[in-house]
Write a protein that binds this DNA or RNA. Structure first.
Lengths: 279, 279
DNA sequence: GGATGTGAAATCCTTCACAGCA
DNA sequence: TGCTGTGAAGGATTTCACATCC
């Protein structure tokens, strides 16, 4: 998962344990992060079912469609209440309503997009995002050629006006689609503008106050994770059970290191990340 | 993470322990998924440091820059071997090399992009992605106006040719940026073309053979997770310590159901997901 | 009979704290 | 002395399996 937890909120090195509350005592809203993400998926699947006039589902059916196992699904749903009927299943409409309520989808969340490049355009052109739900209500860029130009129906404002505009338009979610260099500053301004939820597409680790929620969408990381799996597969294929006596430990048995390539490939510093600077 | 485990694969209730290997044979590949994702982040941070001529970092410094705590960072690095020097820290160049090796970044991974809409364009225009690393080598769409038109230097092929083209160009990673409707079929074709790693931007849960790795980038889900946090915050603000002594249990205390809103809002079926059909 | 809801076990991940080495 | 590497403790998440109810 993306985490985005407390992060290094300043305390660089200081052993300070932060203001850490006595854990979950506070909010009984104890829905695990992981479950929240899945609820959103269930919601989508359910919507599809509702469209096809399906009125009832069992945990088996829904879980299969959502790609999880049924026990997990039931536990996830149990976090939001008991809306099923034993021996029957769940009413699609009811579940949709309850998940929407839990996710806070019954109110609007104005979105601001910063960085109107390829991705920013794509975001702005979502058709204004869900006509109900997540309306894009502000666009920002620093390119003077773009200022004032409407994209997806909304004129681009200058990045210097973020604070003011966000406050005016009551933006609650900020999407950062700028190049890496500008991302932290844009983030700071969004926060100054009262935006407490950020969706970060820029390949940087944002430093934010702990009351700001950051989710990141990181293409380079995704690609590299996939690359890892390709590599793993290859190794399994190359040496299904070789082991060469290196044993299980493997903790130090990292001699797998390809001869002569150890520190060399880093000559041209990380070509991957260099490129993925802006979507 | 789509999991992709047995899922509905019959295992419904059958006590069959599956083919589950004794875990021992798993060897050194024991790097936790979560750690792999972070390694990619460390790599990026390290690259930035290398660019600035930094040659050595301590776990404290690196972890702060990566937004994790130092113990986690050290544990993550320990999965790939022991490349630090006690009392000193890590050599940036060495770590970069080792992480790249672990993630399989020492070989190329040809990428195919299916669906040349807003997002597909953005992906194709990455400049051909990392000149070394993840070259985009194929583009697909079904819009006949697009076929043959070069985007980001690569001509668009018809989606019917996926299999053939992927095999020819040895595509290892497929990015699906199509509308929801076509995604599963595109996915199936990619798999038929030998693509075992898929990055899915379409808002659907893909069904794939278990040897195919799927990562998904799901805007609607991300937005909804943020929405959840906004809602949680609001509730906390509205009733900072109400709780009514519900304590931790709260398992059943989910009667939080807002009066009169239960099944009503589901009238217009999930406006959110309807919109986010294509980035 | 059939499916939900949920304690409890199992698994995975994170954090602690300290031994060990440069 | 200072920082890495890592067992062990602690949490969080997932899975099991079954009591419970329609």
């Amino acid at each position: 998962m993306q985490d985005g937890d407390g992060s290094g909120a300043g305390g660089t090195g200081s052993p300070e344990p932060a203001i850490e509350v006595p854990a979950a005592r506070e909010r009984a809203r104890a829905i695990p992060e992981a479950a929240v993400a899945r609820l959103a998926v269930y919601l989508r699947v359910l919507s599809g079912m509702a469209e096809q006039e399906v009125t009832t589902v069992s945990s088996e059916e829904l879980s299969a469609a959502a790609g999880v196992n049924s026990a997990k699904l039931r536990k996830d749903l149990s976090y939001i209440g008991s809306y099923g009927t034993r021996g029957v299943g769940y009413e699609v409409a009811v579940l949709i309503g309850q998940i929407e309520r839990t996710l806070g989808l019954t109110r609007k969340h104005s979105v601001a997009v910063a960085g109107i490049g390829n991705l920013g355009h794509a975001l702005a052109n979502y058709g204004g995002f869900p006509s109900r739900g997540f309306p894009v209500s502000a666009l920002f860029d620093m390119d003077s050629d773009l200022i004032g130009v409407p994209v997806g129906g909304i004129p681009v404002d200058h990045i210097d006006d973020i604070e003011q505009v966000c406050i005016e338009r009551e933006v609650t979610i900020g999407a950062i689609a700028t190049p890496a260099q500008g991302a932290q500053e844009v983030c700071d301004r969004l926060v100054a503008g009262g935006v407490a939820c950020i969706l970060n597409f820029a390949p940087v680790v944002l430093q934010v106050p702990e009351d700001v929620e950051v989710r990141k969408v990181d293409l380079a990381v995704e690609m590299q994770i996939l690359s890892f799996h390709v590599a793993r597969r290859q190794q399994d294929a190359d040496a299904p059970e070789t082991a060469g006596g290196s044993g299980v430990a493997g903790v130090d048995g990292v001699d797998v290191g390809p001869p002569g390539t150890s520190g060399r490939m880093s000559q041209e510093i990380d070509p991957v990340n260099r490129m993925v600077e802006r979507l």
